[in-house]
Design a protein around this nucleic acid. Sequence first.
DNA 1: GAGCCAATCACATCTTCATGTGAATGAACA
DNA 2: TGTTCATTCACATGAAGATGTGATTGGCTC
Lengths: 210, 210
Amino acid sequence: MIDVGIVEDNVKIRNLIQRYLDMQENLSCKIAVDSVEEMLEHLKEHDPPNVMLMDIQLPGMSGIEGIGIIKKEYPDIEIIMLTIYHDSHKIFDSLCAGASGYLLKHTTLPEIKNSIENLAEGGAPMSPQIARKVIEYFSAQEPQKKPVSDLTAREQDIVTGLVDGLSYKLIADRFDISIDTVRAHIRNIYKKLHVNSKAEVIAKSLRGEI
Amino acid sequence: MIDVGIVEDNVKIRNLIQRYLDMQENLSCKIAVDSVEEMLEHLKEHDPPNVMLMDIQLPGMSGIEGIGIIKKEYPDIEIIMLTIYHDSHKIFDSLCAGASGYLLKHTTLPEIKNSIENLAEGGAPMSPQIARKVIEYFSAQEPQKKPVSDLTAREQDIVTGLVDGLSYKLIADRFDISIDTVRAHIRNIYKKLHVNSKAEVIAKSLRGEI
DNA sequence: GAGCCAATCACATCTTCATGTGAATGAACA
DNA sequence: TGTTCATTCACATGAAGATGTGATTGGCTC
C-alpha cells in the first residue's frame, strides 16, 4: 500500500484526485491540503506519506521551496510535481530541489495512478513534454569530447591511485609492484598525456579527459 | 505514417522488432541493419526514416558514435537507444550525443510502439529506470552550489594555480608573490581543507567541494 | 624468429613538496 | 586600543616526485 499526500490549492482538483487515489486498492490518500505550511504542520504529528503530489503555485510558500524543506526533513518522501507550468526554469528548479517526477495538470487520473506506481518501482514519472525538455537539456550541453585514453589498463590503475591522492609508495603497495615500476608507468603516462606533473594527471582525469 | 529504421546486430531481435513495427497501421519499418556503417550506406541512397532505434554495442562503430554522425548528417532523424546498458555514462553520453530517447532491451514490443508514437508527439521515451537516473542527475548536481569554502580570495587563487598544474614557483610568478608566501598559503589551505597534498586539493576542487 | 610493446625492476640525480618555526604589515572589529 | 586574521616573506630539513639511463620477461605480430 502506497500512502499519498497532496498539496494543491484548487479544492475541486484536490478533492477529485484524493477521492480517486484513495479509491484504488493499492493506494491510500488521507492527507490533502492546500499549502506547504499546512503539510508541514500535519507531518509533525503524523507518519509521512510515501509519495507527495505537489503543485507549484500555492498560497504562501511555493511548491519548489516546499520540496527542499520537505526533502530535508523527510528525505524518504518522493515528490511528484503536478502543475500547469512547463517552462524549463520551473522544471529544472523542481528537479534540482529534489522532485522525483513532474506531471502536467492535464494528466488523467489513471495516468497519475500509473505514475505513482511507476515511482514506487524506481521510475521517474514525467509527462512526455517534460521528458523532452529534460533530454534536450543534455544535447544542448557541449558536445562531449572524446576521452580515447591511449593508456593501458595498468596505466589507468596508476592514474586511479594518483587521483586517490596516494604517494608512489602507496600505489606500489596497492598493486603489489615496486615503486620503480610505478615511476616507470608514470613516466609513460606523462609522455602519452603530454603533461609533466601528478597535478596535471589528476586534473585531466577528473575533467574526464582520460 | 512514421518510418522507422533499426540498427541492431542481434538478428533475432532485429527481425522481431522490424516485423512487429512494420505490421502496425501507423508505422513502417523497411530498413533494419546490423551496423552504423551499413545504415550510413543505406541513407546515401534512400530517404531517411523519421525515427531510428539504435543499439549501443555494435560491430564496428558504437551506437553512441553513430548518433553523432547520423544527427549531424540527418538532424531530423529522432534516435531512440535500445540497449541493455543502464550505466550513467552510456546514458548521458547518448543523450549528449543527441539521442531523443533511451529504452532498455526488456521493453516489450507494444511499449516500443508506444515510445515511437510518444516521440512523434514531442515526447522523450525512457524506461522508468533511465528516467530516474536522468532526474537524479539534477538533484545530485545543483544542491551544493556553494560548498561554503572557508578559503580566502587569495587562497582560492592559489588553488586555481594548483588545479592548473602549476608548480609553487609558477604560482608565485603568476600572482607576483614569493614562493614562500605560496607555501604559507598552501599550508593554510591544507589545514582548512584537512588534506595534506596537492593531489587532494586538486581532487576536492574539481569535485566541486571547494 | 625478429621486432614491438606492456609490465616489471634498478640506480642515480636534481627538483619540488610538505612541514616546522618565526615574523612584519595592515585592515577589520570589538 | 588591543586582538584577530589575511597576506606577505624567510630559513631549514626530510620526504616525495620528475627524469635519465639502463635491463628483463612474456605476449603478440609480421
